[in-house]
Design a protein around this nucleic acid. Structure first.
Lengths: 128, 128
DNA sequence: AGGCTTTCGTTAGTGATACTAATGAGCTCG
DNA sequence: CGAGCTCATTAGTATCACTAACGAAAGCCT
């Protein structure tokens, strides 16, 4: 329940952005791990290929990413971010969480440490 | 990010239920706090009245809750759960999180304690 | 080599959740 | 009483997820 609440607050707090959180997440993956196929993107975020196709369509049709054919496997399509995409990703990640920053600043050191530990646990629970 | 991941996993893990998590959440509020107006429900979950109207429409049109006019204020509409609604809420809350239970069982006592503390912090951060 | 199966990506259709904006109905207060 | 506020609803839009069906490419097996 607590997780749901934080997530909802998180989304509503920056629904104003040009892209939704799933789309931004894809750009983050592309920046961190380099060009990826649709399949690997959908595996990374535990989403069906159909859903991921929709998300990357938003990205490509708005110029945040481009499709590149894989030369070694004709079935595969690699997605890579454009400079516009990287820019949006960076600025969204930077100022989109200012609300969260200020909330976290009001915590004690001990509390921040609890959150830090909990983060690892939550990642583990989410399954990667 | 960790919160997003857990939330997505949580939703996908029981998307099979009859109702979505927002709708179940409303039923939980109604059970805990008694009949509520649309406004108070939307305030509790930090959602606009328009969104909440849609959610309660799902509940009422499927027989999980009913509308009751407030005798003291003609503008207000109280929502209360039906027995069917309470039943669905209870069973969903009970067995819908079996995945989460088993994940948590695999943690150590200390880790569970961290999560427990983090829960309170997250609730505070979510603002409610 | 030819055919069956698997993998990959896409599209179509649906559902849940959220938002804004506009509207109408009912209170409240000067 | 009338102006302005509150409450609920509706309409329209966007995101994010799902399943199902499809075509194209690759792999495997006889």
């Amino acid at each position: 329940m607590a997780v749901s609440r934080v997530y909802r607050r998180f989304r509503s707090e920056r629904a104003r952005g040009e892209l939704g959180d799933a789309a931004i997440g894809v750009l983050t993956q592309l920046r961190k791990k380099g060009p990826q196929t649709l399949k690997s993107l959908s595996d990374l975020t535990h989403v069906t290929p159909g859903s991921m196709s929709q998300t990357v369509n938003r990205l490509t049709s708005d110029g945040y990413a481009i499709r590149v054919s894989d030369p070694t496997d004709g079935r595969k399509v690699l997605f890579e971010p454009t400079s516009k995409g990287l820019e949006v990703e960076a600025s969204t990640m930077a100022q989109g969480v200012s609300w969260l920053d200020s909330e976290i600043e009001q915590l004690t050191d001990a509390e921040r440490d609890v959150l830090k530990q909990a983060t690892d646990l939550l990642k583990r629970i989410a399954g990667s």
